[in-house]
Every structure is written in structure tokens, then in C-alpha cells.
Amino acid sequence: MRQQLLARQPAYGYELKQGLEQTFGAAYPQPNIGQIYVTLSRLEKSGLIRGTEVTQEGRPDKKVYEITEKGTEELANWFEAPTEGPRVRDEFFMKLILAEGTDLTDQLTLINNQRRHCINMMRGLNRLAATERGNRTSLLLIEGAVLHLQADLDWLERCQEELT
């Protein structure tokens, strides 16, 4: 992510943090500055970015980072590759199937609890969408999350139809 932003222009760690915030808005979980520096030093060690010390008057030196040729190449591959991702809640499914035959819970309880959880999450997303009104990037991301939750809920209904 930091590397992606560096492909636009060289930047300091703090500038990257601000850039991320401006680009993605509040819907996107923001890394803290520590995580950013850790990532930057890891990327630098791998030769994907290069840091240059800049002396500042009256303040400690800071490093400006830019992307290297190798980094650009890797980034191009990243853009080109299809994006895989988790599509089914494996852990919930595991619980649902393994619940049968235990006295610990039953499938309907599991489905009801999961449904409640999804709806409460959805409530949170509605809230977030209200505060992010006007930020199109943020709203798109929230809409993606909303559609995922809707799919989860539809799937829970299917589980209920088949299993209970």
C-alpha cells in the first residue's frame, strides 16, 4: 500500500500516512505511523523502495522514500494479477457443520447469532456511510462491505433452509 502511493511521488513517512487518510477516508482502517515505518524499512530492505536522508534545520533528519525500478516492476505485477480473496466465512461454516452431535450449541442458535452479528455490523456501516457522505471512495468501500454482508445473510438463509 505504501509502495503503491510511492509510485505517484516520493514522500516522507508522515506524508504517506496523510495521503492514505485523504485517499481512502475513514472507512478504510488506517495504519498508525509506527506500522508505516516498519513497512517502509521492510520494503527498503527488499530493494523495492529507496530512502534518502534529508537534513532539516533544528530537527532530526528525515528520510524521503521513492520507489525503485524493482519496486515498480513488482507493482506492475501486482496490478496485473487477479485478486484472490476469502469469499466464504470458513470458520462459521466449520462451527455450523461441527455443531451437530455436540451438546454445546445447535445449528439454529449459530445461524441466529451470526445473523444478529451481520445485522449489527450493517448498522455500523450505515453509521459510517452517514459520516462519510460526500467521500465517494469511502462510500464505495462501504457499499462493497454492505454487499458482502448481504451475501452472507442470504447464505445464512440457505443454510437454515438446508440444515434446520
Binding site: A26, A27, Y28, P29, Q30, G85, P86, N120, M121, R123, G124, L125, R127, L128, T131, L141, I142, G144, A145, H148, L149
Partner: peptide, 17 residues
């Protein structure tokens, strides 16, 4: 959701980052 939820969580929990 608790008020602190959204700034800390965003859409995490639904979308994998």
C-alpha cells in the same frame, strides 16, 4: 455499535485487508 467502533474498525471484519 459503540461510538469508537468506526474509526478503529472501518469496514474491517467484512473486507479483508
Amino acid at each position: 455499535p459503540p461510538a469508537a467502533w468506526q474509526s478503529a474498525t472501518g469496514v474491517r471484519g467484512v473486507i479483508d485487508f
